[in-house]
Amino acid sequence: MAQAIINGILIGGLYAIIGVGMSIIFGIVKLTNLAHGEFVVLAAYFSLAISAATGLNPGLSLILVGPIMFFIGFAIQNLIVNRLMPRGAEAPLLVMFGMSIIIQNVILQVFSADPQHLTNPLDTSNFALGNAVVPTTFLIDCVIGVCVILALNVFMKHTYVGMAVRAVSDDTTAAKIMGINVNLIYGVAMGIAMVTSAVAGVLVGQTYNFYPTTGSQYLIISFGIVVIGGMGSIKGTLVAGLIFGLAQLLGGFLFGTTLQLLAGYIIILIMLAVKPQGLFAK
């Protein structure tokens, strides 16, 4: 039990970083990014390729993966999504769906369907906490995830770009009148979200095996985070990650590991039925 609770809390930090990108996009660009899970997996594959080519530690490969993902997000938003935004929510949603299928199959062609893993010197190390044995990787995931989210919070509150992003999300017309280039800000917001997916991808890659089709699993986790935490709320994603991680790990502890995912899905469905705007919606 203690084991499940500690693991649940730590995994919650990982889930929060997986979901925060989707939450930003939901809240600011008002886009349902159905490719979010694929972007997380794509980042993991980038990291794999870079660390294989240069011998860098996967964590350090983020120096390259982060900017690459930022650029991809910025480009997709500016070249495709911004043009479709005036047509309502349906067209961008379907474009991102198409994008997710393309990315998934391109990864499949390039890297094959074999499971991959980002090797890390701490892979097998554990430490004891009371009578629970905790993998060090989980702790690293949680600490990095939470730190990145807190840094993002500071960025949004105290920098010019962050304030512009929040202004656009609160009132697009007013932001335009104040001279903010809304489309550019959407691009930047998408880029920032993609940097968080890059971090999430590397953390996921060093924690679990990944293969081209795992993206949908992370999309559903992200959606759970958004639904529980409330869209666009950065603080909400942390709490939601915690709830979701605990629900899954406790569900797995009580009903067996096969039903671990099911416990998470049921929490999302209940949440959707009872309070679809989330706990911390603005």
């Binding site: 949603l93 559903i220 959606f223 639904v227 995912l261 099911l262 899905y265 999302i268 469905l269 959707l272």
Partner: peptide, 18 residues
């Protein structure tokens, strides 16, 4: 909208596990 979209998907994923 998107809530409906994802909820239908999650339902199917839940059925897959069952």
């Amino acid at each position: 909208g998107m809530y409906f979209a994802i909820a239908t998907w999650i339902t199917s994923e839940a059925l897959k596990i069952i």
